[in-house]
Design a protein around this nucleic acid. Structure first.
Lengths: 211, 211
DNA sequence: ACGCATACCGACCGTATGGTATGTTATTTT
DNA sequence: AAAATAACATACCATACGGTCGGTATGCGT
């Protein structure tokens, strides 16, 4: 009987439960509108536990962005879009995958670090920088495929792999903004279709594509 | 001597000064992090004046989004990109104009209703809807040119003028998110270059463009 | 001159907030 | 087993917040 205590709500994982609560609540309400008490209630921990694990609310923001970076990079590494052997096919599979996971509640498919960066860019530089690390760390995972596709197709146009990788995130982040404004995930998927078409155009400038 | 009162700070325009303060401060700090006192100080009015003009902070949010819609639509109507007679040239001039005005401090060129919608989409539907009216009202001004360009070029691809108009806003909104995360307006301009290239590709599928 | 509406003032209120101080319990170290 | 430490829990605090309220000043129609 290793846990004979009265009601003990699983000691030792309060930190992770707080980070998960932050991930979910901040995406729905924003950082400033999310109170420490909100997070404690959702994570079923006390305020003492919160300030034991995080020096301040701002420190939690940084940790939440880092946590997002870790979990999403693991998620994308395990995602099926790495299947194709051709780098361009992988890139297009990535875009298709990003489109496919835009489903259900808006707060469930949108990006924590995008909203967090937008809200804190001027008032909390350390949170902003953690968000930037997450976003641009993710774009970096696309660059090698883009560069390989560029070279295999002999593309010499005046854009770089890094800039196209960033542009995919631009479209994804913007798609979330429009979806939120209209309360309609379809608007986000629509822009990913344009992104898909753009990428195909970049690599097949002449012919019309047939998936 | 029509105004012999002690120090009277220009009676009658407190409402507009509050809306201007809201426009500037909310873009920098976000809606939730902007207090009513912040706005009153910046607008140099008292709290009494604030709640005389706005029933609540949320009502100010709606009014600020409406004010943004009015001022920006006037701004874009007066902008020089309407010069070209060809509708495609006007569309490209629009994109170039959007790129050209991305300068200076981030809070000065970014979009109020984009950040506001992202922050309030779940918690304040009336603010969100006001933001949506502003965003999609603006996209509507692009649709006629896009549709005219489509027809003059005989484009029959499977995208609509409305969806391309929305996509331009997606790219612009996303560009602001990346610029904020990286504290670098150049990232926003970079994505507008991709948008420009995409539009040219859509309307000149074969040839390489020469401005 | 009078009445009235609009515009504004500034003190005040109840609550929510981020944060702290101190105590208690489990876990690891020695 | 003892000591040290990490992981909580609880009560509390100062302040900041959105909002209210009674009052004042100014312009305008009559």
């Amino acid at each position: 009987m290793p846990r004979p205590t009265k009601h003990a709500p699983e000691r030792g994982n309060a930190r992770i439960r707080l980070l998960e609560a932050a991930r979910d609540i901040i995406r729905a309400k924003g950082f400033a509108a999310t109170s420490v008490d909100d997070l404690c209630k959702a994570a079923d921990v006390t305020k003492g536990a919160f300030f034991h694990h995080f020096a301040s609310k701002e420190a939690l923001g940084v940790a939440a962005a880092d946590f997002w970076a870790e979990t999403t990079s693991a998620f994308f590494e395990a995602a099926p879009y790495h299947g194709p052997t051709d780098p361009l096919a992988r890139l297009l599979a990535y875009v298709a995958f990003r489109k496919a996971i835009i489903q259900g509640e808006i707060a469930e498919f949108t990006c924590l670090v995008g909203t967090l960066a937008q809200e804190t860019y001027a008032s909390a530089p350390d949170i902003r920088d953690a968000c930037a690390r997450s976003i641009f760390g993710h774009t970096a995972t696309l660059e090698t495929d883009i560069e390989a596709a560029r070279q295999s197709r002999g593309i010499t146009a005046d854009w770089t792999a890094a800039s196209l990788a960033r542009h995919t995130q631009t479209v994804i982040q913007g798609a979330f903004v429009l979806a939120k404004a209209a309360s309609d995930p379809a608007l986000a998927r629509e822009s990913l279709d344009h992104l898909d078409r753009y990428i195909r155009h970049l690599f097949h400038p002449a012919e019309e594509d047939a998936a």
